[in-house]
Amino acid sequence: MGLLAVEGLSIGYHTEKGLLHAVEDVSFTVKRGRSLGLVGESGCGKTTLGLAILRLLPENGTILKGRILFDGADLLEKSDEAMRRIRWKEISMIFQAAMNALNPVHRVKDQIAEAILTHEPETPRETVRSRVEALFDQVGIPRSRMGDFPHQYSGGMKQRAVIAMALALRPRLIIADEPTTALDVIVQDQILRQTRRIQEAFDISMIVISHDIAVVAEVCHDIGVLYAGQLVEYGDRESVLQSPMHPYSRMLLGAFLTVGGKPPRVPDNGNDSPDLMDPAPGCRFHDRCPMAEDPCRQTPVASVTVGRTHRVLCRRVA
């Protein structure tokens, strides 16, 4: 039993033109102290999934079916009030472009103290201070910079501060949406390694959402590959990276540029992601898939277990 279990989750957005099927029948679990990476191109539904777990979907987003079990209780059945208590305290988040999440007119340490005091108002001042100091140490910001304002920080430091904020209430699950996208390669590498250290040291579970399979490969134990709202492949890091089964994962990994290995080969038939307004009932990748057959488009696909912890959504694999 995992800390978080998403079961058969489908999410849609109401738009002017009708219902957009953003996420279709997605299931996965996040075990205690493990991290799951969700990868896929923009528009594949990865951010939507993250928002849905926090129940922060925009107004026109609806959960069509499925359950989100956190500690065995369905988050979708919780009251708004209960959900508010869970956010930050139990499940916290690091958003895309998180550096804008810092308030420019307050000192960074005050903002983090504020986060603690809002949820745990009884904490004595002394304790708050030592906790804030500890957080700065953990994320690798020198204590001398604690009293700075956000604009005095570099991009990497802001990102570290945001991570400190997400850690402030010692949550059990952190959802990080593109945590390093806006950063330079060297800084990105440092922050990813730090994140992994923290996650292991504190036994926190994490969901890392990224378009970059390298980011996910760097930090996560498990990997889920999303394509056009479907979780096409899901398994532990080694299985997915070393023996990807779904044609899309293969394409994604094949496209990954390395400085050593073989040159990538990606078939280009000019097709693009499908229209999510009216998706075909079958596999959503069939348009771009080099091994697609007629039934791929029409018949709904069931996921196939190919290893102990490795599932693939492809009828050609079966």
Partner: peptide, 11 residues
């Protein structure tokens, strides 16, 4: 810069 490449990219 080479160090910062994802290890997965260097095999």
């Amino acid at each position: 810069l080479m160090d910062a490449l994802p290890r997965f990219a260097c095999g």
